[in-house]
Each structure stands twice: as C-alpha cells, then as structure tokens.
C-alpha cells in the first residue's frame, strides 16, 4: 500500500507492507538515512523523529499509521539556508557528539524538550534524555549542548 505523508515540509510517498515501520519507510522508502535504528525495542532513541509535532520512536511506529502525518526528521532540522540550526550548532560547539550515530535522535529529542521547556535545568535535560542512549560522550557534552542551545551559559569546551 502506498503511504503518503508530509516529510520535512514536502509531500512524499512510498510503498509499504502492513508491517513496514516508519523507520524503514524513511530509510528505505524515502532514502532519508539520517534516522538511525539502534535497538528495535524503543530503548535507544536513535530513530527519534517528530510526528505531528510530537517526538516518536520511528522503530515502533507503523508507517501506515502515519498516512497524512507531518513528519520531521534530522534532514529537516537545518536552517533554510542549509546552515546548522541553533541546536545543531550547539552540539558542534560543545562537542556533543562523537560517532554521530545517536546524534540525530539526540537533536530531535533536544528540539522537543526545548519546545516544551525553553529553559531546562541540567536535571531536566538528563531526565528528558532518559530514552536516548549515547555510548560515546558520557552525556556530559550532550547535556551542555542542550543547555547552551537554550541560551544558558555553560563552561567552555575544553580544560574545564
């Protein structure tokens, strides 16, 4: 069955089976490979996207349930001119990523958090990111990146 949704502002379609997951639809159907699959059990958050403005783990959403939905993926997060958005730039400035595999989910989670809570505390950030696993950074610089993206001052990147 052909499923159509608005992805990153554009209407997109791809063929699906009933069992096709949103992550498969995005990665294989639309070749939007920025959404990553790290665990298949909704635990790691590498596949986090926004569906109708809400964060959703694309590995546990059926594509056919998203017919007509508005979906935003990491590919839709940069500024219109292609430059890094405020959140993306904060991750680069504060070394909030290493291997980059969890990063799309982290950025999508950070965007969802800051929409609801524009001035989170460190504890708020750590609590909110409970569903996103990073194996590289020890979260230290991810937390700083999110706080910096919210406009709060954080320590400089090195020699703290």
């Amino acid at each position: 069955m052909k499923v159509t949704m608005t992805v990153n502002g554009k209407e997109r379609s791809a063929e699906t089976e009933g069992r096709t997951l949103l992550s498969e639809y995005l990665r294989e159907g639309l070749r939007l490979t920025g959404t990553h699959v790290g665990c298949d059990t909704s635990q790691c958050g590498a596949c986090l996207v926004h569906v109708d403005g809400q964060p959703a783990k694309a590995c546990t959403v059926l594509a056919q349930d998203c017919e007509g939905a508005e979906v935003t993926t990491i590919e839709g997060m940069a500024n219109a001119d292609g430059s890094l958005s405020r959140i993306q730039q904060a991750f680069q400035d504060h070394h909030g990523l290493q291997c980059g595999f969890c990063t799309p989910g982290m950025v999508m989670a950070a965007a969802a958090l800051l929409k609801d809570n524009p001035q989170p505390t460190e504890a708020d950030v750590r609590h909110y990111l409970e569903g996103n696993i990073c194996r590289c950074t020890g979260y230290h610089n991810i937390v700083k990146s999110v706080l910096a993206a919210s406009g709060q001052s954080v320590e400089p990147v090195a020699a703290e």
């Binding site: 490979t33 993926t73 590919e75 997060m77 940069a78 890094l84 993306q88 980059g100 990063t103």
Partner: peptide, 12 residues
Amino acid sequence: EDVRFLTGKGRY
C-alpha cells in the same frame, strides 16, 4: 565531521 552527522548526511 560533525556537520554531516548533525544534518543526517553521515554515510554509515
């Protein structure tokens, strides 16, 4: 390398 990873352009 961050630019490609942050924009979904990494090639894994």
